[in-house]
Computed example of a mutant assay.
Amino acid sequence: MDDSFYMRDLDEETLFIVSQTFKALSDPTRIRILNLLFEKEYAVNDISETLGLRQSTVSHQLRFLKNLRLVKYRREGTTIYYSHDDEHVINVLQQMINHALHH
Score class of each variant (00 low, 15 high):
residue 48 S to I: 14
residue 49 E to K: 15
residue 48 S to E: 13
residue 30 R to A: 12
residue 85 D to K: 01
residue 18 V to C: 09
residue 49 E to P: 12
residue 91 N to Y: 02
residue 93 L to C: 00
residue 90 I to S: 04
residue 51 L to Y: 03
residue 84 H to W: 00
residue 43 A to Y: 07
residue 43 A to V: 06
residue 93 L to H: 04
residue 69 R to P: 01
residue 57 T to A: 05
residue 73 Y to T: 13
residue 40 K to R: 04
residue 53 L to D: 05
residue 3 D to S: 07
residue 76 E to R: 03
residue 62 L to T: 05
residue 30 R to D: 07
residue 1 M to R: 12
residue 73 Y to L: 08
residue 51 L to C: 01
residue 51 L to V: 05
residue 55 Q to E: 06
residue 43 A to C: 06
residue 67 N to S: 15
residue 98 N to M: 00
residue 15 L to V: 04
residue 65 L to D: 07
residue 7 M to Y: 14
residue 102 H to I: 01
residue 98 N to R: 05
residue 1 M to I: 14
residue 82 Y to D: 10
residue 5 F to Q: 06
residue 69 R to T: 04
residue 94 Q to M: 03
residue 59 S to Q: 14
residue 84 H to F: 03
residue 9 D to V: 10
residue 1 M to V: 12
residue 101 L to S: 01
residue 3 D to P: 12
residue 83 S to P: 02
residue 42 Y to V: 08
residue 8 R to W: 04
residue 10 L to S: 10
residue 29 T to F: 13
residue 33 I to L: 15
residue 64 F to I: 13
residue 3 D to M: 08
residue 87 E to Y: 07
residue 9 D to P: 02
residue 39 E to V: 10
residue 57 T to H: 08
residue 90 I to V: 09
residue 47 I to K: 02
residue 94 Q to H: 01
residue 100 A to F: 01
residue 71 V to E: 13
residue 96 M to T: 04
residue 29 T to E: 09
residue 27 D to E: 12
residue 90 I to W: 11
residue 87 E to W: 08
residue 61 Q to A: 15
residue 42 Y to D: 00
residue 93 L to T: 01
residue 78 T to Y: 12
residue 35 N to P: 02
residue 34 L to D: 14
residue 9 D to R: 12
residue 80 I to M: 14
residue 90 I to N: 00
residue 14 T to R: 15
residue 90 I to M: 08
residue 95 Q to M: 11
residue 100 A to G: 00
residue 67 N to T: 09
residue 29 T to G: 10
residue 99 H to K: 07
residue 96 M to E: 06
residue 100 A to V: 03
residue 32 R to A: 10
residue 34 L to G: 12
residue 67 N to I: 11
residue 91 N to F: 02
residue 30 R to N: 14
residue 73 Y to W: 15
residue 58 V to F: 05
residue 12 E to C: 06
residue 9 D to K: 14
residue 65 L to G: 09
residue 79 T to D: 05
residue 31 I to K: 04
residue 24 A to N: 11
residue 38 F to L: 11
residue 29 T to D: 14
